[in-house]
Each structure stands twice: as C-alpha cells, then as structure tokens.
Simulated assay, not measured.
Amino acid sequence: MGTVVFIIQLLLGLAFLFFGLMKFGSKQMTEEFARYGYPQWFRVVTGIVELAAGVLLLAGFWNDQLTAWGSLLATLCMIGAVVTHLKVKDAAAKFTTPAVLLILSAFLLYVNSGNF
C-alpha cells in the first residue's frame, strides 16, 4: 500500500497548492465565494489553509507528522467545501472534485492518524 499512499499524498499536495493559489487570483473563485454568500476575506483564508495543507502534505515525505497535519487540514477544508455546495444546492457535478478530495484526504488522515 506504500506506493498507493505515496501517489495519493503527492496528488493531494499538488492539488491543494493549485486550488489554494486559485483562491488568490481567479475571477471565478471571487465570483463563486460571492455566490456562496461568503465574504472575500474568507476566500483568502481558505486559500491560505489550502496552501498550508499542500505544503504540509509535500513536506510530509520527509516527516510523517507533517503528513498527518496536512491531511487533517485538507479533510477539514473539504468538509467545508462539500457542506457549502450542499448549502447552495449545487448540482452533484459541481462538488464532485471536493468530495473526491475529501475521501482521499480522509483516507490519508486515517493512514497517518498515529503520527500526531
């Protein structure tokens, strides 16, 4: 299972870096957070949390405790994302990506839960 966990950790780390950076400069993200009814400062905070999760997940290749913290941040962030999409009654296709990221993050959190 080591290779599978390695690949999941790498993909999640890169995904959270990508999506975190999008929160800072994407017009689409600005519009989406307004549609969700969230203030724009929350978009920035969400971006910072996602970037932190991505950095921790990638740094976790050298320190398992960082993977545990990164996967915890990622899981909590994706719970918020899925709840938000449900709250605004988005179509399932709109929150498929956050749901998949939630499942993968929760799996990685479970695998690393002994590293806190």
Rank of each mutant, 00 (worst) to 15 (best):
Y110W: 15
F24H: 13
T67E: 03
F33I: 04
N115R: 11
L17K: 07
T96K: 01
T3Q: 04
S71H: 11
F42Q: 12
G20T: 05
S26K: 05
G70K: 07
L14F: 12
F61S: 02
L11S: 07
G114H: 05
Y110T: 09
L58R: 07
W62M: 05
V49N: 09
M22Y: 04
L14C: 11
Q28K: 03
K87P: 00
F6E: 11
G47S: 11
I7D: 00
N112I: 04
F107Q: 02
A52S: 10
E50Q: 15
P98Y: 09
I48A: 14
T3H: 05
L12P: 04
F61C: 04
F6P: 05
L57T: 04
F33W: 03
L57R: 01
G25F: 15
A106K: 06
A52M: 14
F33V: 03
M1Q: 08
E32Y: 07
L102V: 01
L12N: 02
G114T: 01
M1Y: 11
G114Q: 06
F16V: 05
G25Q: 08
L72H: 04
C77I: 15
F24E: 13
M22I: 08
V88C: 10
E31N: 01
L56S: 01
F16I: 06
F33R: 06
F16E: 13
K94L: 08
C77D: 14
M29A: 06
I103A: 10
F33C: 07
V82L: 14
Q9E: 09
N112E: 08
K23L: 04
L21I: 13
T46S: 15
K94G: 06
L17G: 00
V88D: 09
A93P: 00
V55Y: 09
F16A: 02
F18L: 12
K87N: 12
K23M: 07
Q9H: 09
F61A: 07
V82H: 05
V100W: 03
P39V: 14
D64S: 05
F19G: 09
V100N: 03
V100T: 11
Y110C: 02
N115P: 00
G47N: 14
F18D: 13
G37N: 12
L66S: 02
N115C: 01
H85L: 10
G37A: 13
T30V: 13
T97S: 12
L14V: 14
Q65D: 04
G114L: 03
S113C: 09
T96S: 06
F33L: 02
L73K: 04
L86I: 06
